[in-house]
Amino acid sequence: MALNAQRRNLGRSAVFAMMASLTAFALPQVAHAEYADVVINNYADAAGMRPVVFPHWFHRVRFRCKVCHADLGFQFKAGGNKINMAKIIDGQFCGACHNGEIAWSVENCGMCHSGIPGTPTHFHGSTVQRLIAPTYKALEKPADKK
């Protein structure tokens, strides 16, 4: 009887451990993309396009923060600018440079729309992301063991 109970406990905790490991590996911090890459998926998935991956590092090498965040009016918030293609071809946001003059033009869809489908809007590798994903949760005992 005692042995049976032990085996049952063992099985339960193995299932729990599998669930815990799945949770741990599903967290965004496991992807190792570049720090400060922004995935923007306000509308892309719904429109059947891959989400946009914006590499901060690539743009920072060429322009100071002020150019986009003061002159072009980009808010300091991932997904907070409600950018869409209509605004871009009107010369707003990305379209201020991605117009074939300063940078390549909008016909190169896949250069921006290059994210894995289903990835939510987020800052890659941000401290906030690390705070809401506490790995120590996985060590907690399951509810049926008190």
Partner: peptide
Amino acid sequence: DGIHDSNNEATFALQPPKVAF
């Protein structure tokens, strides 16, 4: 890198960070 889609051809045209750094 885990967030770019490797099924997207243009992903391979993007500059790798190490080259720029």
